[in-house]
């Protein structure tokens, strides 16, 4: 899903997508829209903050809060 949003980056090589410039605020919104649709959930608006999209682990933790395990 991340590659679909920013195909030019290697997300596996980064531990902080935001600080490394791999995701900006609009990319986070796009990712949330994709996650909501894919997993039939609604990530709360207050959860759309950089801390939750820093890396794969934080995104996985966010999904787990919504009952999704990957």
């Amino acid at each position: 899903m991340l590659k679909g949003i920013r195909p030019e980056f290697d997300f596996a090589a980064s531990s902080d997508f935001i600080a490394d410039g791999l995701l900006d605020s609009f990319d986070m919104v796009t990712l949330v829209a994709d996650l909501d649709k894919t997993f039939s959930i609604s990530i709360d608006g207050v959860e759309i903050v950089p801390e939750n999209f820093k890396n794969i682990e934080t995104i996985r933790a966010l999904l787990q809060k919504h009952g999704i395990t990957t």
């Binding site: 605020s25 609009f26 919104v29 709360d44 608006g45 207050v46 759309i48 903050v49 950089p50």
Partner: peptide
Amino acid sequence: GSAVFNFVQ
């Protein structure tokens, strides 16, 4: 944009 979005939510 991020600050405004979070303020609204």
